[in-house]
């Protein structure tokens, strides 16, 4: 038997939509062993840090506890500065729910040491962004920093 009842318009299907259609759960994420120090440096010192694996010659940003390549435990912490280069970018015109943004937003993947930070890019128009362009992190004032990636307010062109 093939299933003969075929629907061509999904709006005509009957569906189940419970009265208590909520599932009010959430998640809480600790930042981890490396994150504890990385975000502490952002919050307390407005400093971006990385960890260096000397055998693989890689500096991970954000800092990590271990090297994914050779499984060494990493304890060489470096201040990698607040500058990076645009590795790639996109211009977002819609919000997560599909509504239009009042202003397009530039989201950049910024290469800092050997890592990538995805963040907002302000201070230039979409047409002015180029891959490889130098950008710099702008930190929130100390009193507003909480130990989050948003302690970096945004990046701006150097």
């Amino acid at each position: 038997m093939a299933f003969l009842e075929r629907s061509t318009k999904n709006t005509e299907n009957r569906y189940w939509y419970p009265e208590e259609n909520t599932f009010p759960v959430s998640n809480r994420y600790t930042t981890g062993v490396a994150g504890q120090r990385f975000f502490g440096e952002l919050k307390d010192n407005a400093r971006i840090t990385g960890t260096r694996c000397h055998s693989c010659q890689v500096t991970f940003v954000p800092a990590r506890m271990f090297c994914e390549r050779c499984f060494a435990r990493l304890d060489d912490w470096l201040d990698v500065g607040s500058e990076g280069t645009v590795f790639s970018y996109t211009v977002a015109y819609v919000n997560r729910d599909g509504s239009a943004k009042p202003e397009p937003a530039i989201i950049a993947a910024v290469r800092v040491a050997d890592g990538i930070l995805v963040h907002r890019l302000l201070g230039c128009n979409a047409g002015e962004v180029t891959i490889g362009m130098k950008v710099q992190a702008v930190f929130r004032p100390e009193a507003e920093r909480t130990g989050s990636i948003l302690d970096i307010s945004h990046f701006r062109p150097v």
């Binding site: 981890g32 062993v33 506890m65 271990f66």
Partner: peptide, 16 residues
């Protein structure tokens, strides 16, 4: 009950 480590870090510890 609650670990400081992230899921990746827990995995690393056991694997290592």
């Amino acid at each position: 009950r609650r670990a400081l480590e992230t899921p990746k870090e827990l995995s690393f510890e056991a694997t290592k």
